[in-house]
């Protein structure tokens, strides 16, 4: 417990340093560029305090739970040698963490609005929500596939850059065929899928696998899962736009 206490104090100071630049930028622009007083000082101070506290809890919790659990599961799967279940797990992890992602829900709703304005779908709430839901499922499946391919890559030791560059090539090739309205959304959807809980868990899974399997280097082979998860949604969302 004493360890946790000193860890906590150290982390609070670090969190404060991490967040200081944001407040510097805000204060500088508010006072010197826009030249306005701060609108709500009490909320600003309380909110800052909460952000620092939240980041501290998150980082400590990360090292206690998400990192060790991701690595120990990767290790257990490697020990068991069940490729099928490992791939099922990888798919579920990608799909399950993405389908509920709030940022994704927001983006798909906006995409449905754009599709309606572009007369791609009927002007009704039912058509809009089914379009948004279809898009969400599409992105979630694409992230599931991404993590599965990424895990296969670690197992086989395929070089990451060939796969990523081929992915880029596909994005570039299908962009001219995708409807104009969906391109911005498609490109952005790559970035919004990877949430704060998914990233540490998936990173730990990749690093754990690369550590447990002989002949793999955790540094060169362990990373790359997030890269796949940011790439495939772009392709799938554009294909979704082309088909509909």
């Amino acid at each position: 417990m004493a360890f946790l206490k000193s860890r906590f104090i150290k982390q609070i100071i670090e969190s404060f340093i991490d967040l200081a630049p944001i407040f510097t930028v805000i204060l500088f622009f508010q006072f010197f560029v826009i030249e306005q007083p701060l609108p709500d000082i009490i909320n600003l101070i309380t909110g800052t305090f909460l952000v620092v506290l939240g980041l501290t809890f998150f980082i400590i919790g990360l090292e206690l739970s998400l990192f060790p659990i991701g690595e120990s599961m990767a290790y257990e799967f490697a020990q068991k040698g069940s490729l099928f279940w490992l791939l099922v797990f990888a798919f579920c992890l990608g799909f399950g963490t993405t389908i509920a992602e709030p940022a994704l829900i927001a983006v798909t709703n906006e995409a449905a609005e754009i599709a309606r304005l572009g007369n791609m779908i009927n002007d009704s709430d039912a058509a809009k929500s089914s379009y948004a839901f279809g898009l969400r499922i599409t992105v979630a499946i694409s992230v599931g596939i991404a993590i599965t391919i990424g895990v296969l890559r670690i197992l086989h030791g395929w070089p990451l850059h060939y796969l990523i560059i081929s992915g880029y090539a596909i994005v570039v090739l299908i962009t001219p065929f995708a409807p104009q309205e969906i391109i911005g959304i498609a490109y952005d959807s790559g970035g919004v899928t990877t949430s704060t809980i998914t990233v540490p868990l998936v990173t730990a899974l990749g690093v754990g696998l690369a550590t447990a399997i002989k002949g793999r280097n955790p540094m060169t082979d362990g990373f790359g899962l997030i890269a796949f998860a940011s790439l495939t949604p772009m392709i799938f969302v554009m294909v979704y736009g082309i088909i509909l």
Binding site: G54, F58, I59, G61, L62, S65
Partner: peptide
């Protein structure tokens, strides 16, 4: 314990 920390941390954040 760590999981609770993560959830509480993200919510506070």
């Amino acid at each position: 314990f760590g999981f609770v920390y993560v959830v509480v941390g993200i919510a506070l954040f």
